[in-house]
Amino acid sequence: MQEEKIYDQPTPGKRLWWDIFLTFFKIGAFTIGGGYVMVPFIEKEIVEKKKWMKPEEFLDMLAIAQSAPGVLATNIAVSSCYQIAGIPGAVFGALGAALPSFMIIIIIAMFLLNFQDNRYVAGFFYGAAPAVTMLLFLAAINMVKGVVKERAGMFVLVLGLLGLIGFGVHPILAILIAVVFGAFFYK
């Protein structure tokens, strides 16, 4: 009873679109590391603070975001803001989430393209790249634990690694093979 009062449908209109834009802009500006890092921040803003949707609705929106291809942060912004304010909401949410990184990267690109040969800049990337490699390595290891529980999954993983690394199979082809495999050989 009380819950229905707390999670009122927000009043539709331009003010709500602007509010959505600013909320996602803020989330986009302060979450470092991309999609998965954003999830708890988005939940806090739109469920706890703004009360635009119920926690269980947010979980559904997260499931939608994860089942589509593309940028996870954009997907979450689109699915949840569509729920809150329709297609305009989705547009404002997605643009708000993307704009901070867009602006920051343009500034860095201007700097980097001028200073690429600087000894300190080059040295920094020389040292940081091995750390990023290990980051990817650990991400892959963690994903193996979470995802590959059965033999069929192990088969796709090994075949995929062999094809992608050993034979230079195009990633789009690899995804399509995985789709066909999933649709026809999984129970």
């Binding site: 193996v144 995802v147 590959v148 995929g160 690694l161 094809g163 992608l164 690394i165």
Partner: peptide, 9 residues
């Protein structure tokens, strides 16, 4: 699992 293979590659 193919996504894992992509991160591996």
């Amino acid at each position: 699992p193919m996504a894992v293979a992509l991160v591996g590659s």
